[in-house]
Each structure stands twice: as C-alpha cells, then as structure tokens.
Design a protein around this nucleic acid. Structure first.
Lengths: 241, 241
DNA sequence: CGTTTGATTGACACGAGTCAACACCAGTGG
DNA sequence: CCACTGGTGTTGACTCGTGTCAATCAAACG
C-alpha cells in the first residue's frame, strides 16, 4: 500500500520523485495512537502539524451542553493545522476515532519543506482548498438533505476520498465508526442513524459488516443522494495543465 | 466610517501605516453591484479575488433539485478566493444579497502585495483560518442547535463580525436579508424562520424593523444560544504577542 | 460465563416542513 | 389620487421526519 500522504498530494500538484522521497522521509516518524484518544484539545495552542497515515480521526466542536459535532473526518493522507504558527489557540478539538498512525511535524519542518519544494507547497495549499470545499459540502448536506441522503452522501464521500489514497477498492472500504459517531457527523441521533443505515441496507444500496462498508453500485448511490465529487477537486493533475 | 478591509485585517496582524495605505489604495477601485447579482458562478474558473467593502454577499451551494444552501455570509472586509490561482473551477457560487460595493483584485496584485508586506500576508492567512472556523461553527449549529438557537447564533455572529469592522454599533446593525435568505443560511423553511424571529421578538431579545436588527441585550442573547466568539479569533493583536 | 458495549426495536412526543390563505407594504400606471 | 400589482411577511391547519426513552438483543471481552 502506497504512502497515503504522497498519494493524496499527487492530486494537488505534479510531484517529482524528489518531492516524493521528501514526503516519504517525513512519514517515517509515525506513531501509533489508540482509538478515541485526543490529539489536540480546544483552547490549546497548537504546536505541531499532524498527518494521519492510517485510521480515521476527526475534528469536532463541543457545544455548551456537552454535545459534540464532528466537523471533519481526517482520513489517511489528511493534515491538521497546517497553519499552526498562525493560531493563538485551537477553536476545536482533534481526536482519533479508530486506531491511527499519525506523524507530528514541527512548523519549522513544514516551512523548510515548503520553501525548498514548491510543488509540495502548492499541494498543501490545495489541501486547504479541498478542506474548505468539504466543509461547505457538509453544510449544504446538513441544511438541505434528509437523514438517509446525508448518510448516503457521507458514504459516497468516504469511498471517493479513500480511493484517492488507495485505501478503498472499487466499491468497499474498512469502516469502523460507531453509529453514535456517525450521528455526530450527520447531526442525527444514534437511533436515527441506525434506522437510516437499515434503510440503505434494505434498499440494497449497501452492506455493512465486519467493520467494512460495501456499496454495491456506487454510481447508483451517488445518483440517489446527489453526490457530486467536484468539491474534492480530485481531477488528476495530468488531466489538465 | 473606516475602511472595513483595513479594520478587519487589523485583527489578524499588527499593520503598519504603510500597510494601511497599501490596503486603502487597493480599495479605490470598488464598483457598485446591485442586490441579488451573481459574482462568480459554480464551475467557472475564478480570475479575480473579490473584496466586499459594503453590503452583504454570500457563498452558496446548489444542490441537485435546485435547493440552495448559503455556506458563508461575506460582510464588509471579507475576501473571496484568495487562493484563486490554485483552483481549477469554483465548487460553489458567490452572489450579492444586498447592494454591495466590491473590489476585484488580480492574482498578481495579491501576490505582489503579500510579497512586499509580510504583515498583510499574515493577516490574509489569518482570514482563511477565521473562515474555516466559521464554517465549522456553522456545521456545529446546523447539526446540534434548534431553529431558534440557530437564528440567535447567527444574529450574534453578525453583531460581532460587523462590530469588528465598524459596521455595527453596540447592539444593532443594518440587516436587509429576506426571511427566505435567512432560511437558506440556517437550513430552515421561510415559514419557520418567520416563527423563530417572532419567538425572539416576543421574548424581547430582538427588534427587527426598518432593515435594522437590534439586539436588546447582546450578552443575554449570546448566553441563550451559547455563542462563543472564539472561532472568530478577534482577540486584538495588542492583547497578545 | 458474566459483563459490557454497541446495535436494534417500538411507542410516543415534538420540531419543522408544507400548503394555502391573507396582510402589508412600495411602486406602478391610469 | 387611487386601483392594481408583485413581493414579503404572517397565520393556521395539517403532515411527517427525527428525537427521546426504554427495553431487548448480539457480539466482544476479560
């Protein structure tokens, strides 16, 4: 399995072999983190840039009252807090969902790399655009879609994003979120997540077993929930400029 | 009334007088745009960075089915598409809501300015972080708050953001959105927006008349909806480093 | 094996959407 | 100067999606 960081950044810029080897080196210092561990807490001053190399992590906001809303899923290849040096304190928290393999990079490492490797710098810029696009897509889903479509849309997004880093095959991927956690992503109660999953199962769209999600006909599910991958900006570099 | 672009960026970096005069110059070429005009359409290749100097504009996503979800409100001082050069095509549209005064800057202007004025560059970076924080806060609101709290939260956010650029006084600001547009922000039907507004009026929280929103006791309304301005990162520069 | 954690189910309550009528302007044109 | 218009805001009645609570089931685990 390829290095997911490299695989992801390939979508954002035309990397050279040298770029790749730099990224590969950065990935060496990965550490293993158990499921449901905090990585950064809201209010802290962030010190490191984190890169997820394996597993699922998330950003989440805590609301007065104690409710949580997950605002982003961090998949293999995803970065957090690229802008680390700019921030006073975190306005949200980051935690693992499954067991993860994570690298922590110092701001100086980042700035050295971006200074000497313009294509990597470009790819990192691209990452933040994709991140913003994803945030907007989630807002649109929360505001306009019903529970089942929201869930279907999430499953489609995960399929496409994981495929982009080589962590999903044609129509399935490892998926170990609890239903309660899916609820925190979609703004639904755990019970309703359960019912929505059942609906997708009974309609024959998906099979979820053994911590693996299988989407029987991805194109059909995408059509069902109106999934348009444009916001992920995955057009292969080679396709354009 | 101060230049809102300068007023906003002051929050992101300690600007010098020279920085301010550069920004003031950039603001000269503003053009007037009527209400409900498209600025950039989804799918287009963006060519210019836009800055709102007066009025309300918005980003919005169009969903299959034709529904719209507003994903960001662009207030005086706000920028769109700083990252213009990086994008292939827009994954969302931008339009005015009220009559606006807008400047369009070329990517080369931007890169020249950021190259020669590191504090402005820093402030622009800061802007994108605030933007992301706001997107996350909206996700959290859509996922976890009920209609009235969502509305109250929006009104609080607008108060604070407009105050930050000198476009609101202690407890009121010009506000000319239709209820249907508020609905597109909050993911609510126009009818329910109406009822939620009435609720806030009858509870004595707000008065909305003459295209002006008055929040009688901002602290109380903030407490009511759990508004925490942290995500706007408006701590005055002078307060820290 | 008991224990625990998470998934599933059913009954019920309630927030929010829908539809349709009506009120209230501001602007228009006669 | 006044009817007419179109766009918004306001109401009421009804429906339906989703949340809540609580019981039960299933699988993982020490």
């Amino acid at each position: 399995m390829r290095n997911p960081l490299i695989a992801k950044l390939e979508h954002g810029a035309a990397l050279t072999d040298e770029d790749r080897s730099v990224l590969a080196q950065l990935s060496n210092a990965a550490r293993r983190v158990g499921a449901r561990q905090m990585v950064i807490r809201e209010g802290e001053r962030p010190e490191m840039v984190h890169v997820v190399l394996d597993g699922f992590a998330c950003r989440y906001n805590t609301l007065p009252g104690g409710n949580h809303q997950i605002t982003a899923l961090l998949l293999p290849g995803d970065l957090c807090n690229l802008h680390v040096a700019m921030l006073d304190t975190m306005d949200h928290s980051i935690a693992t969902l499954s067991t993860c393999s994570i690298v922590a990079l110092s701001p100086t490492t980042i700035s050295e790399v971006t200074e000497h490797h313009p294509r990597i710098a470009r790819a990192l810029w691209w990452c933040t655009l994709v991140e913003e696009g994803t945030l907007r897509a989630w807002i649109a889903g929360l505001g306009q879609r019903n529970a089942v479509q929201r869930l279907a849309h999430l499953l489609c997004e995960l399929l496409v994003r994981l495929q982009a880093v080589g962590h999903a095959d044609e129509n399935s991927y490892a998926f170990s979120l609890r239903q309660a956690e899916i609820g925190e992503v979609l703004g639904l109660s755990p019970v309703h997540v359960n019912r929505s999953l059942q609906h997708l199962r009974q309609t024959g769209f998906i099979t979820a077993e053994n911590r693996r999600m299988t989407i029987h006909d991805p194109d059909q599910l995408k059509a069902y929930c109106g999934f348009d991958p444009h916001y992920l900006h995955l057009t292969k570099r080679s396709d354009r400029s």
